[in-house]
Structure formats: C-alpha cells, structure tokens
C-alpha cells in the first residue's frame, strides 16, 4: 500500500528528545526515510533508529552542533548525499534556560540564541538551497508557548523562540513560490524530560490557566508536525499552530 510520504526524506533535529523522536516515528510510519540529527544521548537515538527501521524505511544518524554554521551545513550536505535529498525538515532541537534575567550571563545568552535562533537559520538556509532547486519542501520549526504568553525566568529562551516564529513567517514568504511551506508548531506544557526541571507548583499554576488540564503528550505535538509535512498541507504556510490545551489563546 502506498504511504503519503513514500520516497521522501525527513531530517529531524533533536532526535534524542521526546518531541523530535515522536516526529521521526510518525514520519517513518508515513513512509519517509529519516535522517536523525542529535547532540547527545547517542544510545537513545540508536534505539529510536532501530524502531524506525521496523517501519521499513531507511534511517541514518548525524551528530550535529546546531550552534555552529559549518556543522549545520555539513549535516545537511551529508543527509542530502546519503539519501539523495531532503524534502522535509523538522527542527525539534531546543536548548532550554530557566533563570532570572539578572543572573543570566552573556555566555548563556549567546548559547541560547545561537542554538535556538541562529542555528535554525543555518539549517534552514542550507536546506532551502536544496529544496528551492527541487521546488518542493516542508519546513517545520518546533517552538513553545513562552514566546507568546511570556514566562518569568525565560526571557532569553522565549526571545529565541519568538525569533524563530518571525523567521518562520519570513521564510514562508520567501520560499512559497517554490512550493516550500514553512510553519511552526508551538508547544504548551509537554510531558518531556525538560518539564521535570520545572517546579511542580509552577506547572500547577499553568495547568490551572489551561483549558485542557493535563500535560500534552509528545505524540500530540508530533501529530500536528506530521500533518504539516504531508503533501496535502500545501495551502498551510507561515502559520504558528499552538498545541497547548488552550494555555494560550
């Protein structure tokens, strides 16, 4: 039986984190070959790769330093070479920082902006070069509610995500004529390792404000990312889709 993403290849960053991993699995189930980029926990990414292979698609691993231009270009070039192209890009790698602004160092500011915002630019630029020639592409950036709702202790983190949201809209405008759609999925409180670093009382406060009073599952975010990656979604571009249980409306 034909699957909607047969013969397509997806590059997914943040493969060692739950949302990236869930996206990779969903796309593999739809028939896409998967290039997994990771920055840590190689063992875990190898386990994910083993799961993906069972879907009958090809999978390869790439170590990526997302804050470095050369590494981003290197991984994109290698994935294009090994798979014969990359059609879908899901950027699910995000460095988190929760710290009062006055205690945040210049190095931390640089690290967060470089990884989350500038790194997204490096990767999108390298991929768009290929996608423009191919006249087809899907770019999906995973961001979070802090950029829209604001969050104490997350000034720099939220700035990096707000930057990606704006970058997403500009890229949608610039690349649209070549059949490349660019969208963002903005997460709410999602059940990941990261959330375990957040104070329980704070999580309760947030859940009290949300309409659906539970954490989101990584697979729920991945469902929307998958949907945006499908060929049938070509009329959706430049959008931020909020998957947050009504935390921010």
């Amino acid at each position: 039986m034909n699957k909607p993403l047969d013969a397509k290849t997806a590059l997914i960053t943040g493969a060692s984190y739950e949302v990236g991993a869930a996206c990779a699995l969903k796309l593999a189930q739809d028939g896409a070959n998967i290039a997994l980029a990771y920055d840590a926990d190689k063992d875990q990414v190898e386990q994910l790769a083993a799961e993906i292979i069972r879907e009958g698609v090809d999978v390869k691993l790439f170590e990526l330093s997302i804050g470095e231009s050369a590494s981003c270009k290197g991984v994109v070039d290698a994935a294009i070479e090994l798979f014969g192209g990359v059609d879908i890009f899901i950027n699910a790698q995000t460095a988190f920082l929760s710290k009062p602004l006055l205690e945040t160092t210049e190095q931390e500011i640089d690290y967060i902006l470089q990884n989350n915002l500038t790194g997204t630019f490096y990767l999108c630029r390298a991929l768009a070069r290929y996608m423009m020639k191919k006249r087809w592409g899907r770019i999906i950036n995973i961001i979070g509610f802090a950029a829209f709702l604001g969050a104490a202790g997350e000034t720099v983190f939220s700035a990096s995500l707000g930057g990606v949201a704006a970058l997403t809209k500009t890229l949608a405008r610039e690349l649209g004529s070549r059949n490349i759609t660019v969208n963002a999925v903005s997460l709410g409180l999602t059940d990941t390792k990261l959330i375990k670093r957040v104070d329980n009382l704070l999580i309760d406060d947030y859940l009290n404000c949300a309409i659906v009073k539970r954490l989101g599952a990584p697979s729920e975010a991945a469902d929307i990312a998958r949907c945006l990656a499908l060929p049938t979604s070509e009329y959706i571009t430049g959008q931020v889709v909020h998957v947050n249980g009504g935390l921010y409306i």
Binding site: F121, F148, A152, G163, A166, L167, L171
Partner: peptide
C-alpha cells in the same frame, strides 16, 4: 530574515520581561 527574526525575538523578550 535576519531583521524580522531579531524583532520577533525582541517582542517575545518584552513579554517575558513584563511577566518577570
């Protein structure tokens, strides 16, 4: 792309500063 990213980021920074 660069200018819009910087300005979108600045707006988000502004919101979180208001909260903090």
């Amino acid at each position: 792309a660069n200018y819009s990213a910087s300005k979108g980021a600045l707006s988000a920074f502004s919101r979180s500063c208001a909260v903090e």
